[in-house]
Simulated scan of single mutants.
Amino acid sequence: MSKPPDGPPPTRCFRRAKEIVASASQVSDGTLSNSSTTIAVCDQPIAALLAALDESDGEMDGVSHALEESLGRELSDGFDRSEIARLAFRVGIETTAPEKMGKLSDAIGKHAQQNI
């Protein structure tokens, strides 16, 4: 059996950790680009609703704007299904357990440390 490859050099790990901390700040204030985030959920009724919103002109933006307003954010354009799911998740947590959103940065940091 061969020896598993060593991990990345420490300097690379340090750079990656700095990137993760910077991303945590962006996630916290809602400015992290969509291409850097992933949430996977298997829920057929929600998938059907998102598909219906996507097919209806203006419906996707209308729902997204309502979610952004609920979070106190400035309105933006160009939403996709993933963005609506992320916004809806945040609204749900803010509404039902706002103290958890206050711990977002700590949770992101802990997750990053465990997954480097």
Score class of each variant (00 low, 15 high):
28 S>L: 07
56 S>D: 09
41 V>P: 04
31 T>G: 04
48 A>Y: 11
29 D>H: 09
48 A>C: 12
60 M>I: 01
35 S>L: 08
34 N>A: 10
78 G>M: 10
100 K>W: 02
3 K>M: 15
9 P>E: 04
83 E>C: 06
7 G>S: 13
68 E>K: 05
113 Q>Y: 09
58 G>D: 02
8 P>G: 12
111 H>W: 14
101 M>G: 01
65 H>E: 09
6 D>P: 03
50 L>F: 04
9 P>R: 07
69 E>H: 08
43 D>Y: 14
46 I>V: 11
64 S>I: 01
67 L>D: 02
13 C>I: 08
84 I>D: 01
82 S>C: 06
66 A>T: 14
23 S>Q: 07
13 C>K: 14
55 E>P: 03
8 P>H: 12
80 D>R: 02
113 Q>H: 10
105 S>T: 15
109 G>Y: 14
41 V>C: 00
75 L>Q: 07
68 E>P: 06
73 R>Q: 07
101 M>S: 05
53 L>W: 09
41 V>M: 02
24 A>E: 03
32 L>E: 04
54 D>W: 00
45 P>E: 02
65 H>T: 12
67 L>I: 02
50 L>Q: 03
55 E>F: 06
26 Q>V: 10
27 V>M: 02
105 S>I: 12
16 R>A: 04
110 K>V: 12
102 G>A: 11
74 E>R: 01
90 R>Q: 06
70 S>K: 08
103 K>Y: 06
66 A>K: 10
22 A>Q: 08
16 R>T: 08
30 G>E: 02
32 L>N: 07
72 G>A: 01
8 P>M: 13
29 D>A: 02
57 D>S: 06
10 P>E: 01
55 E>L: 08
49 L>F: 10
52 A>G: 11
62 G>P: 02
22 A>T: 10
97 A>H: 06
110 K>F: 09
46 I>M: 06
55 E>A: 14
26 Q>L: 10
109 G>A: 14
89 F>C: 10
92 G>C: 07
12 R>A: 15
85 A>S: 15
9 P>Y: 06
74 E>Q: 13
5 P>F: 10
29 D>C: 07
10 P>I: 00
27 V>Q: 09
3 K>Q: 11
53 L>R: 01
69 E>G: 06
101 M>D: 03
36 S>N: 15
107 A>N: 03
66 A>D: 05
83 E>R: 05
82 S>D: 08
59 E>H: 14
74 E>T: 11
74 E>P: 00
41 V>I: 06
64 S>F: 02
37 T>L: 09
98 P>G: 01
56 S>P: 03
20 I>E: 13
36 S>G: 12
29 D>T: 11
28 S>Q: 05
56 S>G: 06
25 S>H: 03
102 G>C: 10
84 I>F: 09
28 S>T: 07
23 S>R: 12
34 N>W: 05
95 T>M: 05
55 E>T: 09
12 R>Q: 15
47 A>E: 15
107 A>S: 08
104 L>P: 00
92 G>T: 06
64 S>T: 01
87 L>K: 04
27 V>N: 01
3 K>T: 15
103 K>R: 10
96 T>L: 11
102 G>K: 03
115 N>C: 05
81 R>S: 07
58 G>N: 03
20 I>N: 15
48 A>V: 12
79 F>V: 03
59 E>N: 14
79 F>H: 15
32 L>I: 13
114 Q>W: 07
9 P>L: 12
77 D>S: 13
